[in-house]
Measured scan of single mutants.
Amino acid sequence: ELVLALYDYQEKSPREVTMKKGDILTLLNSTNKDWWKVEVNDRQGFVPASYVKKLD
């Protein structure tokens, strides 16, 4: 499943990933309501769920 980055996000820990507004990311896990695991540029990590939106 793919998600769209709604905002820029700068990683604050090694478990997170940086994304730019408009990026298309692969959603790996959305079981946590606050932090979703995504893959971007061959890196996996977490981003705030409120910063991304699922693409239909």
Results as ranks from 00 to 15, higher is better:
E1G: 14
E1D: 12
E1R: 14
L2M: 12
L2C: 08
L2P: 06
V3F: 08
V3Y: 13
L4Y: 11
L4C: 08
L4P: 00
A5M: 03
A5C: 12
A5Q: 01
L6R: 05
L6F: 03
L6W: 03
Y7N: 09
Y7Q: 11
Y7V: 09
D8G: 05
D8A: 07
D8E: 05
D8M: 03
D8R: 03
Y9R: 02
Y9L: 01
Y9D: 00
Y9A: 00
Q10F: 14
E11Q: 14
E11D: 05
K12Q: 14
S13A: 10
S13M: 08
P14N: 11
P14A: 13
P14G: 10
R15G: 15
R15Y: 14
E16L: 05
E16C: 06
E16D: 05
V17G: 02
V17T: 06
V17W: 06
V17K: 01
V17C: 09
T18F: 05
T18I: 03
T18L: 03
T18H: 06
T18S: 15
M19N: 00
M19P: 00
M19Y: 02
K20M: 10
K21A: 15
G22D: 06
G22N: 07
G22F: 05
G22W: 06
G22E: 03
D23V: 05
D23G: 04
D23C: 07
D23N: 07
D23T: 09
I24M: 07
I24L: 09
I24N: 03
I24F: 06
L25R: 00
L25A: 09
T26W: 13
T26A: 14
T26Q: 15
T26N: 10
L27T: 01
L27E: 00
L27C: 08
L27K: 02
L27A: 02
L28Y: 04
N29S: 13
N29E: 15
N29I: 08
S30P: 07
S30I: 07
S30L: 05
N32D: 15
N32W: 07
N32E: 11
K33R: 13
K33P: 14
D34W: 15
D34M: 13
D34L: 13
D34R: 12
D34P: 02
W35R: 03
W35Y: 07
W35K: 02
W36T: 04
W36E: 01
W36Y: 07
W36F: 07
K37A: 09
K37L: 15
K37F: 15
K37Y: 15
K37S: 08
K37R: 11
V38A: 01
E39D: 08
E39Y: 08
E39G: 10
E39W: 09
V40G: 14
V40L: 15
N41D: 14
N41S: 11
N41C: 12
N41E: 13
N41F: 13
N41R: 13
N41P: 10
D42W: 07
D42I: 06
D42M: 12
D42H: 13
D42K: 12
R43M: 06
R43F: 06
R43L: 06
Q44S: 12
Q44I: 14
Q44P: 06
G45E: 02
G45Q: 02
F46Y: 15
F46S: 03
V47F: 00
V47E: 01
V47K: 00
V47Y: 01
P48G: 01
P48Y: 02
P48E: 01
P48A: 02
A49E: 04
A49M: 05
S50A: 14
S50I: 10
S50E: 10
Y51W: 06
Y51M: 12
Y51Q: 05
Y51F: 13
Y51V: 05
V52C: 12
V52Q: 00
V52R: 01
K54R: 14
K54Y: 10
K54H: 09
K54A: 08
K54F: 10
L55T: 06
L55Y: 09
L55Q: 06
L55C: 11
D56M: 10
D56F: 11
D56S: 13
D56Q: 11
